[in-house]
């Protein structure tokens, strides 16, 4: 199965990547070729197989309910959080006005 230009346009919109007509024309056959190629996975009988969940068998660790125990994962560092923002005002990030 190949994917056509409108499908690529739809995915691009879903992925929030603006694409020109020329880009769509170029991308559609490339993506089709890749998808055609990965479709060989359909040959594999996986009826008895569970999808992989943990790469290396391991279970999820849980952390203690402590505030700011480690500054690298704690809050109270607004300057660092805002330091790279394209627009930061009055302690907020600024984005174009959203109408909900």
């Amino acid at each position: 199965m190949s994917i056509d230009r409108p499908t690529v346009a739809k995915i691009a919109s879903l992925a929030r990547i603006k694409m020109t007509d020329a880009e769509l024309d170029r991308m559609a056959p490339e993506l089709s070729a890749i998808l055609d190629w990965v479709e060989q996975l359909g040959e594999v009988d996986t009826s008895e197989v569970e999808p992989m969940t943990a790469v290396i068998p391991n279970t999820l660790r849980l952390r203690a309910d402590e505030v700011d125990a480690d500054p690298r994962t704690g809050g109270d560092r607004r300057d660092d959080v805002l330091a790279n923002a394209p627009v930061a005002e009055h302690g907020f990030f600024g984005v174009p006005k959203v109408i909900e």
């Binding site: 505030v67 700011d68 125990a69 690298r72 994962t73 809050g75 560092r77 607004r78 660092d80 302690g91």
Partner: peptide, 16 residues
Amino acid sequence: GASTAFGAEPNTQVSL
């Protein structure tokens, strides 16, 4: 590890 307390100054309870 950021706090969940209500009503703080904007973006002060935000971790990386």
